[in-house]
Write a protein that binds this DNA or RNA. Structure first.
Lengths: 205, 205
DNA sequence: TTACTGACTTTTTTAACAAATTTATCAAAA
DNA sequence: TTTTGATAAATTTGTTAAAAAAGTCAGTAA
């Protein structure tokens, strides 16, 4: 809690902000450490003083994004008692998140091999948090007798999340791959809402 | 209907069979025209007498596969009156088809750009045929009052097909990409059956 | 005339290597 | 402890030559 560390943290944050802007506009591979450094009027070497390498910097930015995203979900989903509302909120939040940070994730779309495992761990953590939040609502709904009890609520929530996630990928598969897919996002979004509607009906008595 | 054309057709079929074996074992890019020719003890030039180029040959094989696949669906799905049974049959048939021809489709997994548009047209045709078959069962079920009427049955069928298809893609996304995914096929299959179950319940009264 | 081939040309892949760019390190200054 | 300029190491990019594969065609055989 010393002032020294506060100062460090502030600088770290500044680096993360500048990096985020660069990654957001140009993606991972088209962003160089020199560019980030000169955006901040710092030497590139200083970046390596605060972060071990480029991929760790990218991961740190992603961690921040993930935390913000999960915060938004946590703050709101606990207030819902209706399972459908909860899923709709998840889909909306997710949609906004993807739209806002679309270019940031270019390293995923062009599936670059050099990304470290940590990336997948973060994604897995996000997924688990979503599962936890939604499963809790699920169980609450079962308690209240609004939907049928099931052996494994997590499995059902996972399945719907899978299906929702998948709608994204499928809708481009029989058109050309190359299309940036960004134009499809809204179509996908409305399809997802419909899927939630039918799926949740299927869970009721 | 002359004997000459019959002979031609027989030879064409032989070429298609040999090509299928090669494509199935080694995939598109690792199969050479010379290999196909020598499998048949023919000159490579003859292949070009029957097919304009390699991609057209591949497409012709794929057309045959698609026809077989659709035949199997058509022969059986019309006999079903239950929508769930129809979807289960679709998923099972699809699963078997993918498992059997897994290597044939390697050109899709490593998304090669050089594949001609015709490939996507074939996939689109398959999808439309599936839509038609399943939509008819859907409408019949509505007629019989077993499920709720909807504005656009095709849209619902499309959505479920999307969701089912998507389950495949999603299940690998937070593990590594590279894994051949073949091991996941059975897990995906059972998830799909569960999805069908819940989704169809959601369509009932 | 139709089915077919060997020899040939063109196109695509692969490998090797130099040049340029970028990542990453480090001794030394502030 | 924080910061930098200089420099080393690694990666990407561009070039070129050789090899492999696709694709063509004049001509033979049935």
């Amino acid at each position: 809690m010393s002032t020294v560390n506060d100062q460090q943290d502030i600088k770290r944050e500044k680096i993360l902000d500048a990096s985020y802007q660069r990654f957001l506009h140009y993606g991972y591979s088209k962003t160089t450490m020199n560019e980030i450094a000169s955006d901040l009027s710092l030497s590139k070497a200083l970046l390596y003083y605060y972060f071990p390498d480029k991929s760790q910097l990218y991961i740190a930015v992603m961690r921040k994004l993930a935390a913000d995203y999960l915060k938004s979900l946590e703050d709101n989903i606990v207030t819902f008692t209706d399972l459908k509302e909860a899923f709709v909120f998840q889909v909306n939040t997710n949609h906004d998140f993807i739209v806002k940070n679309y270019n940031f994730f270019d390293s995923f779309r062009l599936n670059e091999q050099n990304l470290p495992d940590t990336i997948w761990e973060i994604i897995s953590e996000i997924h688990q948090s979503e599962m936890k939040l939604l499963s809790d609502v699920f169980k609450a709904e079962v308690e209240k007798g609004k939907i049928r009890p099931v052996d494994n609520p997590e499995e059902i929530v996972d399945l719907l999340l899978d299906a929702l996630h998948a709608v994204r990928v499928r809708s481009i598969s029989h058109k050309k791959f190359k299309l940036p897919q960004k134009e499809h996002l809204d179509e996908i979004h409305s399809k997802r809402l419909l899927l939630i509607d039918i799926f949740i009906k299927g869970l009721k008595y």
